[in-house]
Amino acid sequence: MTLSQTLIARAAQVRVSRAARSSKVSGAAMALIAVVLAALPFLVFSTVTDTLVNLFVLIALASMWNLLAGFGGLVSVGQQAYIGIGAYSVIALADQGVQPYLAVPLGALTCALFAVPTSWLAFRLRGDYFAVGTWVIAEVYRLLVVRIDGVGGGSGKGLSGMSGIDQTLRGALTYWIALALALATIGGCYLLLRGRVGLSLMAVRDEETAASSAGIDVTRAKRLVYLISAAGCGAAGGVITISSLSVNPDAIFSVQWSAYMIFIVVIGGIGYIEGPLLGALVFFALQQVLADYGSWYLVLLGAVGVAAALWLPGGLWGLVRDRTGLSLFPVGYHVREGGGDAASR
């Protein structure tokens, strides 16, 4: 058989579908988990929910970085810029008398606004330049913020407008907002990537030149992803602030956040929506277990990240997927040969 004959014959045998069967079952399971998590403040002590706030922030941040790098191909080391801007927006808005919880979505909006001019500059950079360039941009934002005396300069500032709320209620509200953020980032990624934008992003990621010649507006799709990611990180910064009740410029603009995001995504599995979720759980567990070992846990984390990058390019979720074919958030199309077994992605 010649090559073309083979291809035509094979094409006749395959069926393309979207949702894997497993994802319908798991969808129901996930809805159940979300309901249980939402009810948690009524069921357990506040120490548990307070700890979970950190996990939700990590999930949100990692999902945003995954969207940016894993789907948009924009490997940023500077998302701490938006964590910082989001946090400081909440501080500044609360000073103006805005309810701090309401200030969180406003902080996300502020970040999206800041991201527009920033993207003009950052998008002039390609590949590795983009990574370090975004880092420098984050540093510039930090250096500018510490020059503003109104938000505490170099020593940071406390959050106002929270003293009137009962402590238990405050903890629960913060928890719900953090949970909502985590769910919104995951759901947002899923919906975004299922649609036209997702399709063009994946085309761009696989072959940028071909995608642009096929009529995909590459820059527009990437900019959209960048803005959404900025907003998500900003909201996360806001949640961090209402949880810790204060902000410190060096901590909130720290490149450490990028380290966390990158390692969670790499360990979990870059380019899968499930990756950051799984990675955040692993990271969070490591953090809890190794909390007493000081910096050694970061040494271990770095080493695990290096190992994952070298030997596990698909991360833990890639491993799970290869073994079981499981997909919780199917955004790709599945080619089924002869109507039977799933092949390819």
């Binding site: 080391v77 990158i262 770095g302 994952a308």
Partner: peptide
């Protein structure tokens, strides 16, 4: 990622 991990 490897060099970033090394840095940490």
């Amino acid at each position: 990622l490897v060099t970033f991990g090394l840095s940490i």
